[in-house]
Every structure is written in structure tokens, then in C-alpha cells.
């Protein structure tokens, strides 16, 4: 079997890269090789994983500096003798080896608006059409791997912004709720303020790394920015709201 040179981060913040030579097969993924390393040379290597099918979002890491799911990074892209650096996600506090503490995301999940449906119809039912909720269904594909949060330079390079910025993963959650035809609360003016939408400078790294292929920037962040502009910066919209026209969301 061919052999690659793995440089794997070991330890906590004061850890170091350790070099291993591990056999691999062309049909494998990085996670297979990490498992082989764990079973043969580094039994105490900490690595978080679950489904090994790109659906659970557990094995997020950085492979040669690129935020990726280890289970979706194919070994066929490497050749024998290649050096592969495997690092934990940089944006989150490191626990050990390749495992980080992503609890900041859970705090944001509680912070952003949640779905609060309008009053039911007179017959006690909620009604909505498939065509109206299709947009939000793209966002259901999110597997919460937090690679988009990890790559976003707003917090990756400036951790001080974590207080004011919920990140791309929660912008799609906000978009999902805000665009819902039955939503009642988050569509009000000012409801989008305070989550750091205006920190995003749409450099699209979140979209680039999303393993679910969600067009985070084009379909969630920019539409939300435009809705925020409706409420904050567009005097024509403001006038329209005052005289009750053109506000048919």
C-alpha cells in the first residue's frame, strides 16, 4: 500500500505537530487514514467522528489548511509520499488533538430568532404552499459541521467579534425563519439587527467550504442584508411603510 506523511496536531494550545507515516488505499478518505493511525501508532489520538458519510458534521478539521470534513476528503487526490497536515478547527477553543469546543455555536443557536408562527386560520389550521417554503428548504441541508463558522475571517482572525457576530451558520437559520410565510415576529423592522450581518463583507468563504453545497452568501446572507437595508437605509421603503404601500411581505 502507498504511504503518506501525516502531520497531525497533538495536544492542546501548547501542543505541536507530530509526523507519522501511514499506509492508505486510493479509495479511502482522510478519516480512514486517521483511524488507521489511531489503531496502529497513536491510540490516544482524539478525533471526533460519527457517520463517516458527510451527514453528521462531526469530523470537521483543516486538511492542508483547508477547512474540510475528513470523511469527505478523498485520498485519491494525494499521491504516495505526499505530506498532509491535519489540524483542528482554528476558530474554536482546542480541547485536545483534533477536537475543539464548539459550544459558542450552541449559544448563538439560542440567541437568534426562532420560528413563531402567525395566528391560525379560522378553521384552526396553518396554511402554506410548497412554492413559498422551497427557499428555506435549501437551508435544511445544513449538517452543523461549523466549517463555515470556522473559516469566516470575521471571527477566525478577530475573535473579539464573537460577541457581536453569530456567523454564517446562524444567518441561514435567521433567513430560514425570516423568509417563512407563516413567521410572525422576525419579519418586523429591526428584527435583523444585532446579529452582526453588517460585519460580513461577503467574501464567500462560508459558501466555498460548505459540504452541503448551501449557497450561504447568495441565498441567505445577501437577501438578509437587503432586508436590513429595506428597514434601515431605504427612504423610499420607509415612506412606503408610513403610507402603507409596497410592504407586502
Amino acid at each position: 500500500m502507498p504511504i503518506v506523511e501525516l502531520k497531525v496536531w497533538r495536544g492542546g494550545d501548547d501542543g505541536e505537530y507530530q509526523t507519522f507515516h501511514v499506509e492508505y488505499d486510493e479509495g479511502e478518505v482522510i478519516l480512514d487514514v486517521v483511524h488507521r493511525l489511531q489503531s496502529t501508532q497513536a491510540q490516544d489520538l482524539a478525533v471526533r467522528w460519527n457517520c463517516k458519510a458527510g451527514k453528521c458534521g462531526s469530523c470537521s478539521a483543516e486538511v492542508n489548511g483547508k477547512p474540510s470534513l475528513m470523511c469527505m476528503t478523498r485520498m485519491i487526490n494525494f499521491t504516495s509520499g505526499d505530506v498532509i497536515a491535519i489540524s483542528p478547527m482554528k476558530t474554536f477553543p482546542l480541547i485536545k488533538d483534533l477536537v475543539t469546543d464548539v459550544a459558542w455555536n450552541y449559544e448563538n443557536a439560542r440567541k437568534v430568532p426562532h420560528f413563531k408562527p402567525k395566528e391560525r386560520d379560522a378553521d384552526g389550521k396553518h396554511r402554506m404552499m410548497q412554492i413559498d417554503i422551497e427557499r428555506g428548504q435549501e437551508f435544511h441541508q445544513c449538517i452543523e459541521c461549523y466549517l463555515c463558522q470556522n473559516v469566516c475571517h470575521v471571527i477566525r482572525d478577530h475573535p473579539e467579534n464573537k460577541e457581536n457576530f453569530v456567523g454564517p451558520r446562524f444567518f441561514i437559520q435567521m433567513a430560514q425563519v425570516n423568509m417563512h410565510p407563516l413567521e410572525s415576529v422576525s419579519q418586523k423592522p429591526d428584527a435583523l439587527e444585532g446579529y452582526g450581518l453588517d460585519y460580513c463583507n461577503i467574501t464567500k468563504c462560508c459558501t466555498d467550504v460548505c459540504p452541503a453545497g448551501i449557497k450561504i452568501t447568495d441565498n441567505a446572507i445577501i437577501p438578509l442584508k437587503e432586508r436590513l437595508i429595506d428597514d434601515k437605509f431605504d427612504p423610499l421603503r420607509w415612506l412606503g411603510r408610513k403610507i402603507k404601500i409596497g410592504n407586502s411581505k
Binding site: 453588517d198 460585519y199 463583507n201
Partner: peptide
């Protein structure tokens, strides 16, 4: 250079984007 590419450190020490 904000950022120059994904997962590449940008030079600025602080950042407030378009806010």
C-alpha cells in the same frame, strides 16, 4: 486582503466590516 483567501490570515488587527 480581508481576507486574501479563505483560511489565510488577514493583516488588519481589528475588523468591523461594513458596520
Amino acid at each position: 486582503l480581508s481576507p486574501p483567501a479563505c483560511a489565510v490570515r488577514e493583516p488588519a488587527n481589528s475588523y468591523a466590516g461594513e458596520s
